[in-house]
């Protein structure tokens, strides 16, 4: 839901709680409202309950499984959610996963180990600012 003071809402899906906390904190510092989920099922029920989500931060490996790709496919097939931009931020290395996500419609793919948290958060900020203009 867009807050009365117009903050954008980011849904973060990450199973490692310490990382989830750091991401939430950083996004809030930059001025976003943050919803969190540790599984894609939780994320789906969150999307159903909430009026609007401006962007999704998705981890690929969740609890030893790889539900990320299915989740993106499901979202892109749903008229209510298919326009929500998805940033995949994962420890999964290798070009195959990146290609798979991008071809399913994810907007960006980051390998956690290569990027500072600040860089990713700034990219999200810039991405949403650009989107607002179009």
């Amino acid at each position: 839901m867009k807050n009365s003071d117009g903050k954008k809402v980011i849904l973060v899906i990450e199973d490692e709680v310490p990382l989830l906390e750091a991401i939430k904190r950083k996004l809030e510092l930059v001025g976003f409202d943050v919803l969190t989920a540790t599984t894609t099922d939780q994320a789906l029920s969150c999307l159903q309950d909430v009026k609007k989500v401006n962007l999704i931060w998705l981890d690929h490996y969740l609890f030893g499984k790889e539900p990320g790709l299915l989740f993106v496919a499901e979202l892109k097939n749903n008229p209510k959610w298919k326009l929500i931009p998805i940033f995949v931020i994962s420890n999964a290395s290798g070009a195959e996963k990146k290609q798979a996500y991008l071809s399913l419609g994810a907007d960006k793919y980051y390998a956690k180990v290569d990027y500072r948290l600040e860089q990713i958060v700034n990219d999200i900020h810039r991405f949403l600012a650009e989107k607002r203009k179009t």
Binding site: L19, K26, N91, K112, V113, R116, L117
Partner: peptide, 24 residues
């Protein structure tokens, strides 16, 4: 194993980064 090792390392990196940036 490599994935299991990278996960705590990412946590250390990002928390150190936030401390260094004065976020807390």
């Amino acid at each position: 194993v490599s994935h299991q090792l990278q996960t705590p390392l990412t946590a250390i990196n990002w928390y150190a980064e936030m401390l260094l940036s004065g976020d807390v």
